[in-house]
């Protein structure tokens, strides 16, 4: 998992409450054998005018010109500004996979659905909860300023606005540790790599037959 420390990125809006995971990535895309490649289908039903299907070339599909992610000013956005209860619905990990594949590393909202919130951390995405009034201020500032960026400083736990305002946020210490160091479960286990190697070398002496190579 990639590490998350400081991010200085363009902010894009998802200006509605209760965005569910079906909206984030519709069910027909879950048949995929891959964990990557969901980005072109992120918010599929809002982003395109036709019905999306796996394997359909998204570059040839008619875009919904009214959907903000299609606006030139939000291209390259890495931070998604959202409203209450973002990520509600199913537990599909495809939702954070799609956000991450699109290029988002951070979602700011007044509240998140539990499972989605957890899934974000497993996939290198930082979900930040800020007071609703503060989120509303950010929406106003973002709309007023093309190319609006926010600086997210995870070690310092602050969101810094272009005006220089520093907004503190809370994050669980352990999750912060994992994100800052880019550690997923595998990353954490690999911190014990020396212990695994030590175990393995003892095993090699005790049960050498477990380590014989077999040619297919």
């Amino acid at each position: 998992m990639k590490a998350f420390t400081v991010l200085d990125g363009i902010v894009a809006p998802m200006d509605r409450a209760n965005v569910d995971t079906d909206m984030i990535i519709p069910k027909q895309f879950l048949k995929s054998i891959k964990r990557s490649g969901f980005g072109p289908n992120l918010f599929d039903e809002l982003r395109y005018l036709d019905e999306g299907q796996p394997g359909k070339d998204c570059s040839k599909r008619p875009l919904n010109k009214d959907f903000p992610l299609n606006f030139p000013r939000y291209q390259g956005a890495e931070i998604l500004l959202a409203r209450e209860n973002f990520g509600c619905g199913s537990s599909r990990e495809h939702a954070p996979w799609a956000l991450e594949d699109y290029g988002f590393s951070c979602v700011i909202a007044p509240s998140f659905a539990d499972i989605f919130f957890n899934n974000c951390f497993k996939n290198g995405i930082l979900p930040i909860i800020l007071p609703a009034a503060k989120v509303a201020e950010l929406f106003t500032a973002m709309y007023a300023d093309e190319g609006y960026k926010l600086k997210i400083d995870l070690p310092a736990q602050t969101v810094i606005t272009p005006a220089g305002e520093s907004i503190p946020f809370e994050v669980d210490e352990f999750r912060k540790h994992c994100l800052v160091n880019g550690l997923d479960d595998i990353g954490l286990t690999l911190q014990d790599a020396d212990d695994i190697r030590a175990y393995e070398s003892k095993l090699m002496t005790k049960s050498p037959w477990l380590f014989r190579e077999h040619i297919a």
Partner: peptide
Amino acid sequence: LLYIDRHLVHEVTSPQAFEGLRLAGR
């Protein structure tokens, strides 16, 4: 942390796992 001696793999539950390895460069 439990050591695993043998891992058997089939086509249905492995593709995303391999993809995960690739994405993480492991």
